[in-house]
Design a binder for these strands. Sequence first.
DNA 1: TTCGATTCTTAGGTAGTATCTTTGTTGGAA
DNA 2: TTCCAACAAAGATACTACCTAAGAATCGAA
Lengths: 240, 240
Amino acid sequence: MAGAAAHEPMATGDGGPHRRMLDAVGEDIASGRLEPGTRLTLEELQNEFGVSRTVARDTMRVLETMNLVSSKRRVGIVVQDPSLWNVYDPQLVRWRLASPRPEDQYASLTELRIGVEPVAGACAAQRATGAQRAELAGLAARLRAFGEAGDLESFLEADIAFHRLILRSSGNEMFAGLDGMVAVALTSRTRQGLMPFHPRSEALDAHERAAAAIVRGDPQGAEDALRDVLHEVRAALRLA
Amino acid sequence: MAGAAAHEPMATGDGGPHRRMLDAVGEDIASGRLEPGTRLTLEELQNEFGVSRTVARDTMRVLETMNLVSSKRRVGIVVQDPSLWNVYDPQLVRWRLASPRPEDQYASLTELRIGVEPVAGACAAQRATGAQRAELAGLAARLRAFGEAGDLESFLEADIAFHRLILRSSGNEMFAGLDGMVAVALTSRTRQGLMPFHPRSEALDAHERAAAAIVRGDPQGAEDALRDVLHEVRAALRLA
DNA sequence: TTCGATTCTTAGGTAGTATCTTTGTTGGAA
DNA sequence: TTCCAACAAAGATACTACCTAAGAATCGAA
């Protein structure tokens, strides 16, 4: 890092100095530019970012709760091994997707979806409210419309809403807690052109079957249909 | 001023005042004793816990990164709605399991395992190292031995090691990141007597089939066997 | 009644200092 | 030479005091 000059002198415009520093250090660690074992000191940090000791300290405290660093007396602040990171922190996911190798994060996220979404769908089939079921059916229809029209942007938006709604309707807050990550996964897939569009009609069919199964309260049907949806995704991933 | 009546007067013995305060407030929020929308102020907190403003501040900053609270100027620190919480933070999981209703957390965690572990097993069948495969086979054997001998404590220990190893061998850091939570789920199941012991022989068989499938590199076999393992768990959960 | 300016509360941020713990070093004894 | 103890230094932890800025509430004028 190129010293104090590298980071603008704070200008509380974009979320405050705190946020700026957090993102800078977080990205450096997440991307591997700061290797595990690297030692930082508060003093370096406050000089480099031109912030006070207090700010430096509680920025590090935040990174410490994500297990990105561990801070011990006398030794300083040391960057932790990636295996210890709290990889479900949405902020860390964002940093990793902003790194030079977002593919790893994207692949992990997709495998996670393969596991989680079918089960979440089965739960949703049993627990979703009437309103949620109705909305889901509507989203499936919109997906087909946008997909066949080749309107990528709107398709993405509806796709995110569709998957997010399933997770939230599952009545399991740990599934629901993944919705933000699924959104970034879908977004990055489209943005990076990993999506082989038009969407294949098999994918549209599978989405519709999933929605129908949830609407009629059929857990097994929902699970199977969502497994099909995700297998499409997995297949697309393999090609890339 | 040395601490209000509610919380002991600090005694820097058990991990520092910081940790003590964090756990106290964290548990209060996680358990619902502090309802969403409740407003706290730094001044209250520093009085109640007998700490300085600095400590109160960066404790709150930690809770803020977990999305348990949001802090705004002039208004204070408000407890967030549970739907916003970062439910994958191990610390939050611990707080929730320490609350008066750990069942909810336990149920969510089990559903998550049902989704994740079979897929993780399939990945492990493709990616595990030789050493990992060997260790897994050994663990399956020990599981049977301890299970048939009725040695609950050793069984639990081996069971945790078994599931943890699968997650870590999957080569997916998001699966691996769940290992701590799986450990607490298994532990709390045994500790709370939710486990109908002796373990059923179907469960032991399924563990062995899973290990064998991973050893011989059979993803589908591993996935199916682990699904059986988890269905046992789900069934046991239903009874409770 | 509504809209805008004022005020006031409370978090955000800075500065400086004291304390405590770990670690590396040095010196003396076996 | 080796080993242990005392000591020095580094650096995180914690506290105090003070200033800034941003929302919310209130009050006044149109």
